[in-house]
């Protein structure tokens, strides 16, 4: 009889310990960074670097918690009350949403940090199977018959909007601004998409892990990552003649950070992204640093030079692009008819 009762005691103690271990962490400061999908690997390393730097400068232990997901979905969660101290999302439009729907962010958040609050940029490239069996060279090839294109849904994915706009920019140039032809081209391209995932990571898995599709329109950093994870001898990166300069922005969610007493550390965290150490790490994880001098030249050499259009000068900013292309009843709704 002694043994079972002792076991009961141990179980009880274990349950108690379990319950207690969910108490508040003992770190001096805890930051929550709500980010989008392809930044997981980068922020994992960056957070360690920042924590070490902060400890050295202030003697304070800071723990950074990460939440990743589709950029639009993450913005929604912050609006609904996810206690993010900082947001590091795929596009300015998503942070605008938070500023519009809550009073946690000032409307002019983009002016708080250099380069429109985008400490690194990226662009859109193509990932194809080894040897490029379909002979994909530029955007025009994606609309050809018999080419299966993988890209996420621009209604839900930030990355997918960049993909769409890059294709649009190329077509506008190629067809001399004839919008009917441009629309026809975009319609043909999306007719070639067999699986429209909701987020960038989902599309990556579809293409790389499940082996569906001939070409994957991808974030540049995601394309490099696939080569690294799945082997460079399985995939080739194709750089189109023209692409778009994607600027994933960052911002302190001031309302939350202030309430948690994290204003100073949150600001320092984002500023550290612009520091030589932060820029170097960004380049290492395949994001194009805004300060190239800080990056490892070997890392920089991986980024091909190509003509880049900008959302602000070529599309009149995110708000205008969103309204014209992606809002309900916009151009995307007009041209995209799921086939199957």
């Amino acid at each position: 009889m002694l043994i079972p009762s002792r076991r009961k005691l141990t179980l009880g103690a274990a349950a108690l310990a379990l319950a207690l271990s969910f108490g508040p962490a003992l770190a001096d400061k805890t930051l929550l960074n709500v980010s989008y999908d392809p930044t997981r690997e980068f922020y994992k390393e960056f957070n360690e670097a920042f924590a070490a730097d902060w400890k050295a400068k202030k003697g304070e232990v800071v723990t950074i918690n990460q939440s990743h997901g589709g950029s639009g979905k993450q913005a929604r969660a912050v609006i609904d009350g996810l206690d993010a101290d900082v947001v590091t999302l795929a596009l300015a439009g998503d942070i605008d949403q938070i500023a519009n729907k809550t009073d946690k962010l000032p409307k002019d958040w983009a002016s708080k940090l250099p380069h429109n609050s985008a400490p690194y940029t990226s662009t859109i490239v193509f990932l194809v199977r080894k040897g490029n069996p379909k002979g994909i060279k530029d955007w025009g090839d994606l609309a050809k018959e018999g080419v299966a294109v993988i890209t996420p849904n621009p209604k839900t994915s930030g990355g997918a909007r960049w993909n769409y706009l890059a294709a649009w920019a190329w077509a506008e140039k190629a067809f001399g601004g004839d919008e009917t032809k441009v629309k026809q081209y975009i319609a043909d391209l999306y007719r070639n998409v067999p699986v429209l995932d909701t987020g960038a990571r989902g599309s990556t898995t579809t293409f790389a892990q499940r082996g569906i599709g001939d070409v994957f329109i991808s974030w540049e950093n995601e394309a490099f990552l696939v080569q690294k994870e799945f082997g460079a001898d399985n995939f080739d990166i194709i750089v189109p003649s023209l692409s778009i300069k994607a600027e994933p922005p960052v911002a302190v969610v001031e309302g939350v950070a202030k309430a948690k007493g994290n204003e100073e550390v949150a600001k320092a965290y984002l500023e550290f992204l612009y520091s030589p150490a932060g820029q170097k790490l960004a380049a290492k994880h395949f994001f194009r640093p805004v300060d190239e001098a800080a990056a490892d030249p070997a890392d920089l050499a991986r980024f091909p030079k190509l003509e880049l259009v900008s959302i602000d000068t070529d599309f009149g900013g995110w708000a205008a692009a969103q309204k014209k292309h992606f809002a309900d009843g916009g151009v995307f709704d007009e041209i995209y008819r799921p086939t199957n």
């Binding site: 918690n65 990460q66 939440s67 990743h68 997901g69 989902g202 892990q209 799945f230």
Partner: peptide, 24 residues
Amino acid sequence: SGHIRGLTNTMPLHIEILYNEYNF
């Protein structure tokens, strides 16, 4: 959940995250 690593991820959610990080 809010998907905060180490805080609000249950096992099923964590499995999805690991999968999405190519950590098969």
